[in-house]
């Protein structure tokens, strides 16, 4: 039985880790970009970010004052038992959000969309969002929090099968260029691309691809993996770097997720995670112990399954858990 109180304290700790400590995979990706960057302004911005992340960790203060829209991704083992059930779990996450907003502090960004009512705790109607997934043969729960700004750097478009890979590349470029000017996309960033599904699923998958996969992770389909590499390289050839200054630092990594879609369409979404890509994950084990990490390991073979029934496969994918 996973104790309710443990869920809340873990989620509070996750909020602090996400806001303060840049994930190591992302940091390594940005460091590698600086070495390749020939634009002096773009290189300067990236160096300032490195210094900023060091200051954040040393001072234990958030790396960015726009602490985004804090939210959760929860993966529940099929055998996991939670004290108080799912309703208690949801309440623990809402309590943790409110407490962390005051204690860290996070900016109370969440307001009513029309009346701009602010509870000063990042909790409200449908806030924080909680996305759910499940995992067979497991008795743990994984909780990931993501802090991401929300105004720019994301777009959606209905493409058609005949538009092909060219259409995908064009829309990808359109989005990066439109939002990249003056750095509104907060680039460089991990870029997530959702292809297929229904319109809403397409948006959700692209966001998850950006926020829940680490730098260097490749899709298990080799052709999708090749397109990920190609789009990463294409984005860095636009000529735009950090803050929209001349340079090559646009895409730290590109992750694509695909979903079966309507036979007549090929919807596509593009999401830029922040230059301060903020995520943290914890696994709560059945014995009440907790382990923290920065790889959400969200996209398991089970989550990407293609068949009617699930039968476990040999572990080949990099994102297996």
């Amino acid at each position: 039985m996973i104790p309710r109180e443990r869920i809340e304290t873990t989620a509070r700790e996750l909020m602090a880790r996400a806001a303060i400590d840049i994930p190591e995979d992302y940091l390594a990706g940005v460091r590698a970009m600086i070495d390749r960057e020939k634009g002096e302004l773009s290189a300067f911005v990236l160096e300032a970010m490195l210094e900023n992340w060091r200051a954040a960790s040393t001072d234990r203060r958030p790396m960015c004052a726009d602490t985004g829209l804090p939210r959760y991704y929860v993966k529940i083992g099929n055998e996991a038992r939670i004290e108080g059930g799912m309703v208690a779990l949801e309440e623990a996450l809402r309590r943790a959000t409110a407490a962390a907003t005051h204690d860290i502090p996070l900016r109370p960004n969440r307001v009513h969309p029309l009346w701009r009512t602010d509870h000063d705790n990042n909790v409200g109607i449908f806030a924080p969002e909680i996305d759910w997934s499940f995992e067979p043969g497991a008795d743990w729960i994984d909780i990931t929090t993501v802090h991401k700004g929300g105004l720019f750097g994301t777009d959606w478009r209905m493409l058609f099968p005949g538009d092909g890979i060219d259409g995908i590349k064009r829309f990808y470029l359109d989005t990066l260029i439109a939002f990249g000017r003056r750095g509104l996309a907060c680039q460089p960033a991990i870029v997530g691309v959702g292809i297929g599904g229904s319109k809403d699923a397409c948006m959700v998958l692209g966001k998850q691809a950006a926020c829940l996969r680490i730098v260097g992770d490749r899709h298990p389909d080799p052709k999708v993996a090749a397109l990920e590499r190609e789009l990463t390289e294409l984005g860095n050839r636009i000529g735009m770097g950090a803050m929209g200054f001349s340079g090559s630092s646009m895409v730290v990594d590109c992750h694509i997720e695909v979903a079966y879609t309507h036979t007549g369409g090929m919807p596509m979404s593009v999401h830029c995670f922040c230059l301060s890509s903020r995520r943290a994950t914890a696994r709560l084990h059945a014995d009440g112990s907790v382990t923290f990490r920065t790889d959400p390991a969200w996209f398991t073979p089970y989550l990407r399954r293609e068949t009617v029934a699930w039968s476990p496969q040999p572990e080949t994918s990099a994102s297996s858990v």
Partner: peptide, 14 residues
């Protein structure tokens, strides 16, 4: 004057 990177929140906070 523009802030850098959007943003160097920790450095400015310091």
């Amino acid at each position: 004057l523009t802030t850098v990177g959007y943003g160097t929140g920790a450095l400015l906070g310091r």
